[in-house]
Design a binder for these strands. Structure first.
Lengths: 215, 215
DNA sequence: AACCTATGTTGACACTGGCAACATTGGGAG
DNA sequence: CTCCCAATGTTGCCAGTGTCAACATAGGTT
């Protein structure tokens, strides 16, 4: 029995691989991490696994489907980290901030992977149901946190989906601009995150509206 | 003299084109609009202009440089629309909202072009000085608006660059998720924009902080 | 033991970006 | 006015890519 670690590479004598789909996903992700998306080549990935260039087609419809699967796994990792940050952070106000930090950190630590997820390589509206499900799961983690904070009277009792979407777009924007290197020179990611959360909480207006009305 | 419109396509008898660089940019952008970035092919673009496949290399170092130039022009258009929204909107609170709407509308109306700008096809930190300049220009439009509103006592007197960056990330996030089709089902872009601006102004906390203190 | 389906391989094709060598200009120096 | 040269456009060619069709092999089921 081969050791459980390093089980990805095919043992030289066996014709069948055993778990090629898994190995392909891992190898694709590794390549994405080191070379970027455009470095992903079906031939290279096959070669690295000791397998022919078209073996992949027994497990994925085409290259796009492989990338879609990588993106799907990315959403899973993201959800995992968000939930961990929320729970380990104590499910309170600070934990919400921790979720934001965890989100941006995931993107900044895995820029190419993040780009596969959100770079338009795959369309959740298209026939990729698993991707849509995983995306929904990650988003739900955020909605749950917002709803909890609303219940506890920390956040105002808005529609939680709207509020979660609002904060999602914020961290997503920060992550994207950071990855692209489009943030204004002197501002770092951590600093921007701190500032943004402060402003998100209390707003940007000079005069807070008087007795809190409907609007 | 050929009519000024439709002057892009080369007149069949002339060996030299006259303004091939301009025509290449226009044709590339048109292709990006209709087919997406991955539909951009040097051969096709050349053919459509009645020019050979490698003529482009006299005007751009390679394909990436062409896309970078397209991105640079995109930043220019963006700045133009932001400034227009700000000025036509009356340079006040409402005009700031109009800028946000204009920003997202540009992205949603030209998703592929927007993706060329922000999809990591080009790195402003790399040796693309014109791109960095145009990007800076578009961002400056936002900073100016924020600074003006701070001067007028509408926004609190923070560092304008931080505040501008904050709002930039917000609209950028909305635009990106909208383009990707990642917004939660029932929420439309316009609705999300309205909601987000409301929250950005007054914050998401249930209890506004008492007498406005340092923090 | 026979076989059938899932899995992996080989050969071929059209298409891509890019280089090197060549062709054709038009405008400026004499 | 002439000559020539730098700028611009072209052709031939190459390695590399994703994908399909036809073939090969193996492992489990009957």
């Amino acid at each position: 029995m081969p050791p459980p670690t390093r089980a990805a590479r095919k043992s030289p004598r066996s014709y069948h691989h055993g778990n090629l789909r898994r190995a392909l996903l891992d190898e694709a992700l590794a390549t994405i991490r080191t070379e970027g998306v455009e470095g992903v080549t079906l031939r290279d990935i096959g070669a690295r696994l000791g397998v022919s260039r078209t073996a992949l087609y027994r497990h994925f419809a085409d290259k796009r489907a492989l990338l879609a699967a990588v993106a799907t796994e990315g959403f899973g990792m993201l959800r995992q980290r968000l939930v961990a940050a929320w729970e380990e952070g104590g499910r309170g106000d600070a934990a919400f901030h921790a979720m934001g930090v965890a989100y941006v950190r995931f993107a900044v630590d895995n820029p190419a992977h993040y780009r596969v997820i959100f770079g338009g390589f795959v369309d959740p509206r298209a026939k990729e149901p698993e991707l849509a499900i995983e995306a929904q799961g990650a988003f739900q983690a955020l909605v749950d946190a917002v709803a909890a904070l609303q219940r506890d009277g920390v956040f105002l009792k808005d529609d939680p989906v709207h509020m979660a979407t609002y904060s999602w777009t914020l961290v997503h924007g920060i992550a994207m601009l950071a990855i692209d290197g489009q943030l204004p020179e002197p501002i770092g990611v951590d600093e921007l995150l701190r500032y943004s959360f402060k402003r998100m909480r209390t707003g940007i207006l000079a005069e807070p509206p008087g007795p809190r009305a409907k609007r």
